[in-house]
Design a protein around this nucleic acid. Structure first.
Lengths: 199, 199
DNA sequence: CTATTTTTGAACTAAATAGTACATAAAAGC
DNA sequence: GCTTTTATGTACTATTTAGTTCAAAAATAG
């Protein structure tokens, strides 16, 4: 950042924000528990002492990663919405998951939902934070539905929050169902169901 | 078991089937990775040497646990179906999850779906088996829908396998959505959506 | 009663884990 | 230049993990 007050002492040899993005991508790919510091630190390009000096602990780092993930996702969705509209943004979320499955054979899923399961009952602080992040998404999707209802792209007259909740649940289900190894025909039909909800 | 051929050598001091049930319950409560042998073995009531002698490895045990889980669940569902009918059995599956959440504040979820996520990309053998177990459920739920359509409890004329797939996906979503910390109102409305599907 | 077979308890191993300690390096302030 | 401050590299620690070793125990077969 420009104009930042110069601090005394030896300057950091890495960019904190860049390292955080690298950490986010590693966690997203591997999950929280399966990310060991011995593998994460090379991916972040820093050494252990720098890590603990800057980020305090694995859990504290992950808390910042969750925050960053929500910000990045919501801002990407906002950009997408400006390009293709609110309804199409919702549809594309499901579409992209299915396309990823088709092209790569696997699916990364949503960092928040994946971590939700990992942290449930086990890391209560993180779990609490995930609930708060989830609520941001819930409200954002509700606003997307409201907008699509207003411009006539969604004619379903149910309350926007109800449609958004059902949408989120089906998207979450899609991940779990894919990870349980469901056949492609089942996945494809869930996509149909999602489109029907948004008609 | 009666009439089993007496084997030579020192007899087992525990019942293999009972130990397997205890293991299943422990795994169900704690997940695969968070179940350490040091905690599992006391819960099973056996010592390490007996464990490895009988069950070979943690992964081999879990494979048997998954098999047992599917058998127990499908047989419980079959009993429930005889009592309350096919449609009500499906509805009660969702209802029981929500009730568990209300009463205890948490939810154990489906061992198979939970493990699906844990094993995805990491334990490919188990992941493959989970896909097979999932297919048993998919076919069983399809048969329940078919039966409910035949007796008029479900009037939705979509193919039974389509309804069953959508149902499974919403149930799986319910778990993920609860674990992500969604508000109760969202959960309750997903239950409404499930009932609408089965109308 | 003795040989054979199988199970069991206790102690051990090797690898991985998150986190620490500390000396050294590199900057700013004066 | 000297002091203060902050960052870094290397080595270490304590704990936990799945799995092994092996001698002793408890049964059957003859």
């Amino acid at each position: 950042m420009l104009f930042m007050k110069q601090t005394r002492g030896r300057p950091k040899a890495f960019d904190e924000d860049e390292a955080l993005v690298l950490a986010m991508n590693y966690f997203w790919e591997h999950g929280y528990d399966d990310t060991s510091l011995d593998n994460l630190l090379p991916a972040m390009g820093i050494k252990k002492s720098s890590f603990y000096h800057t980020f305090k602990s694995k859990e504290a780092l992950f808390s910042r990663v969750l925050d960053l993930y929500r910000k990045e996702m919501l801002s990407s969705l906002e950009i997408l919405k400006k390009q293709v509209g609110a309804k199409q943004t919702l549809i594309m979320m499901a579409q992209m998951t299915i396309q990823e499955l088709r092209e790569t054979g696997t699916v990364k899923g949503c960092l928040m939902v994946n971590s939700g399961q990992e942290c449930y009952k086990k890391y209560t602080n993180l779990s609490q934070q995930i609930a708060e992040e989830f609520d941001y998404f819930y409200r954002y999707f509700t606003s997307l539905v409201k907008e699509a209802q207003a411009n006539g792209d969604i004619t379903n007259t149910k309350e926007a929050s109800v449609i958004a909740g059902r949408f989120l649940n089906m998207i979450n289900g899609l991940l779990a169902t894919i990870q349980a190894g469901a056949p492609q025909v089942l996945i494809d039909d869930v996509f149909e169901q999602i489109k029907e909800l948004l008609e």
